[in-house]
């Protein structure tokens, strides 16, 4: 009986982890946005968050595998990029010392691009695209 359950379990597992062949096509517009976002990332973000998105232990939080980065609250991310952040907050169980730069001089498109880059790079796979229109809307509310 027990053996049977094991077998059943194994079968279910095998099915669950069978690679699903689905054509996940990254839309051309998103692909271009991610590409442009990389340039912004290298200039503005990489020093602290590192080339691999891993951040710096206890100083600068990682973006790769970070819950908030791939989460659906795009407005929050847009706000942080524009205004920076100096709050004492715990991020995925760890505290970080450095302040986040403000980037109000980046254009709406640049902010959308860099967010699309960090949300879809390394092991990150965000569900939704960030658009310049969304950045514009969030920015309008900040003023």
């Amino acid at each position: 009986m027990r053996l049977f359950i094991y077998l059943l379990g194994g079968l279910a597992m095998a099915t669950a982890f069978k690679p699903v062949k689905k054509n996940i096509q990254v839309p051309a517009t998103l692909k271009a946005s991610i590409e442009r976002g990389k340039t912004v990332y290298v200039q503005r973000c990489m020093a602290c968050h590192q080339a691999d998105g891993g951040g710096v232990p206890r100083m600068n939080p990682p973006l790769d595998r970070a819950t908030a980065v791939v989460a659906n609250d795009k407005a929050k991310l847009i706000r942080i990029v524009i205004k920076g952040m100096t709050d004492r907050v715990e991020i995925d169980g760890e505290m970080y010392d450095n302040n986040m730069s403000a980037n109000p001089d980046l254009t709406d498109t640049q902010i959308a691009d860099v967010l699309n880059y960090v949300r879809n790079n390394w092991s990150n796979k965000a569900k939704a695209v960030v658009t310049a229109a969304e950045v514009k809307a969030v920015r309008a509310k900040l003023k």
Binding site: G84, T86, N98, M100, S101, A102
Partner: peptide, 8 residues
């Protein structure tokens, strides 16, 4: 004026 921020 704003820490670690370009142009500040």
């Amino acid at each position: 004026e704003v820490d670690r921020t370009k142009g500040s």
